[in-house]
Simulated scan of single mutants.
Amino acid sequence: MPPVMGRLTFRIPQRTRRQTMFKKITVIALALASAWATHAQAQGYPNKPIRVVLGYTAGGAADAVARPLMRVLEPLLGQAIIVEPKPGTAGGVAAEFISKVAPDGYTLYLADGGPFTTAPHLSKVSYHHLNSFTHIGHVCSTGSIMVVHPTSPFKSVADVVAAAKKEPDKWSYGTSGIAGPHHFSGELLKSVSGVNLLHIPYKGGAPAMTDLMGNQVPMLFSSLAAAVGPYKSGKLRALAVTSPKRSGAFPDVPTMDELGYKGFDSTGWFELMGPAGMAPELVARLSQALLKAGEDKNLQEQFKQLGCDAEFLTPAQTVEKIKSDHAKWGKVIKDANIKAE
């Protein structure tokens, strides 16, 4: 018979055990120290100026929203807030930048929804629309407005839909550009009404509005801010706004929902956000200040004049809105076969 093998016993030297235990204690101590440092930092936050980046150049809609908002936030946070434009790829450059900064609460982003709800469906981006960021709070919403020349035969959205069904290859609409918020408004109307309208993209809202007032394009989905002046001076007729509620800047203009397209919601919006990994105490401090700023009547009025209705939301509500819009616009982009320029 072959010999029976005995049980092998390995003894770990005491020195090795001590080294392993020391490493574990060191890891735990470092983790505790890091957590304590983060907590201590959050307790004294903010103790220096805060930088808020924008995805567009100065003088645009983002800048117009940021300036009055930061003036209200500064005394609530007790620090100066420096606004810094980082334009490029419709907010994508700023989104990529903010996803990589330190999560210490001193570099934030006043962002519009595009980089998180539409851009990921149009091209590859370097960030995740939710997980790469800390979403602090939604600030305000602005829809598109559907307008025609005052001499147009179209008195209502129903007139447009009826004409497009009767002559499906005849009618078109203009916007400020491909894959912009107003383009999506037009495509959403096409989707829910079942009509065909040719999209005519312009290189910006100004030339599009000029052509509409010159009666060179049948209809336009425009920003509210660009339409306020011409509307008040009688140079255009407004048919509907694309937001769920009537706009404060156009209280007499109905929503698409009111006109029978239930649940129609095509709104752009702004939110305050930071990089992923921000301490809960920092988020709470900023969210509380943001919600308090939202109670300022003067700020609400300034937003109203911009065509951006104040709608301050909690972090959780903001995340849910992004999820909903990301799914909705993904379907619209796929169904309409929209491609980035």
Rank of each mutant, 00 (worst) to 15 (best):
P3Y: 15
F10H: 10
I12W: 13
P13T: 10
T16P: 00
R17M: 14
V27H: 12
I28P: 12
S34D: 10
A35R: 08
W36E: 11
Q41T: 15
A42S: 11
G44Q: 14
I50D: 02
R51H: 14
G55V: 01
G59Y: 02
V65P: 07
P68G: 14
P68F: 04
L69H: 05
M70A: 15
E74S: 10
P75K: 06
L76S: 03
G78V: 11
G78H: 07
K86H: 14
G91V: 05
A94K: 03
A94C: 04
K100G: 10
A102M: 14
T107F: 00
L108W: 06
P115A: 03
H128L: 07
N131G: 03
I145E: 08
I145S: 05
M146V: 05
V148I: 10
F154P: 00
S156F: 09
S156E: 06
A162F: 05
K165Y: 13
K170P: 05
A179P: 05
H182E: 08
H183E: 08
L197T: 03
A226S: 12
A227W: 04
K232M: 01
K232Y: 04
S233C: 04
L236I: 08
P244W: 04
R246Q: 14
R246K: 11
D252A: 15
P254Q: 01
E258C: 13
K262W: 01
G268R: 12
F270W: 02
E271L: 10
P280T: 07
L282W: 01
L290I: 00
K304M: 11
V319Q: 08
E320M: 11
H326L: 15
H326E: 05
K328H: 13
K334H: 10
